[in-house]
């Protein structure tokens, strides 16, 4: 495992490259695009474990943090979907440079999956895992606000005057994350349900909901000619109203993803 800063010198990204065992190393790499806000903290360890397991299969795996998040440079004002799309492209280029891989696969979770869908039009992308992708930005923001109200409602019984942070920079704050106005505007325009185009890649759609929320989207995509492997793996711990940044390992989902990549190991 190697830690590295890469990308634009003024605003470098932080990433971790997982190497495959020398005897099984192939010419393929995987970039993991993380989720955002409280989901980022919850998923960090599971992304690390996933990267370890995928590397054992023979892939070079790169995890990275978006600008203004995690260990990467920048702060809240540097967060934007436009920049994060560039960050994903930069990470793919870095993986090619570091590992010399020709083919790249993507694994994205939540908003990371949305970015992967958009990036998958590149010809070097072969396979994409979409883990509970955010398909509609307005729904996503509404969900975050709802979770925040539920969480804060519990604490307001003790701390009645819990204050919102006052700043012109932010539209609102939720579950520990302040959302700048520009980022909110960008997320609101995210509507991939109707614009999905995954016809030249093989995609695995991981749906952790109990009510198969994403099955309809999978069917629409299949009809449009995409190669979709729909997997429902229920994750009862996907949300934690008591501690929204509690770390956990959704082992069943990690296994489903590694099994899917095992089919054609490099």
């Amino acid at each position: 495992m190697k830690q590295l800063f890469f990308g634009p010198p003024a605003l470098p990204l932080f990433g971790i490259l997982h190497y495959p065992p020398a005897e099984s190393a192939g010419g393929e790499g995987i970039v993991i695009a993380p989720p955002f806000a409280n989901e980022y903290f919850r998923s960090y360890r599971s992304n690390k474990v996933l990267a370890d397991r995928l590397a054992k299969l023979g892939y070079f795996v790169l995890r990275f943090d978006y600008s203004g998040t995690g260990d990467s440079a920048g702060d809240d004002e540097d967060m934007s979907l436009v920049r994060w799309r560039e960050d994903l492209q930069t990470s793919m280029a870095q993986l090619q440079e570091e590992a010399g891989v020709e083919r790249i696969h993507l694994v994205g979770r939540r908003i990371g999956a949305a970015l992967c869908i958009e990036a998958s039009t590149k010809p070097e992308i072969q396979r994409v895992v979409l883990w509970d992708p955010v398909l509609n930005g307005r729904d996503y923001l509404a969900e975050i606000k709802e979770d925040h109200e539920e969480f804060i409602g519990m604490y307001r019984r003790v701390h009645r005057d819990m204050k919102e942070f006052q700043s012109d920079l932010y539209r609102f704050e939720a579950l520990g994350q302040c959302f700048p106005g520009d980022l909110v505007d960008e997320i609101e325009t995210l509507d991939l349900d109707s614009a999905l185009s995954l016809s030249h890649v093989r995609a695995c759609l991981i749906d952790s909901s109990e009510d198969q929320r994403l099955q309809a989207s999978a069917q629409v995509l299949e009809k449009a000619g995409a190669h979709i492997d729909y997997r429902q793996v229920v994750d009862p711990w996907a949300k934690d109203p008591v501690n929204p940044i509690r770390v956990y390992l959704p082992n069943a989902i990690l296994r489903a993803i590694t099994d899917w990549f095992k089919v054609e190991t490099p």
Binding site: Y155, D161, M162, F165, Q166, E173, L175, G176
Partner: peptide, 15 residues
């Protein structure tokens, strides 16, 4: 720190 939960969820308490 008044009005803060265990992990300082609100930005006001973080600051």
């Amino acid at each position: 720190i008044p009005d803060a939960d265990h992990t300082f969820t609100m930005r006001h308490s973080q600051e």
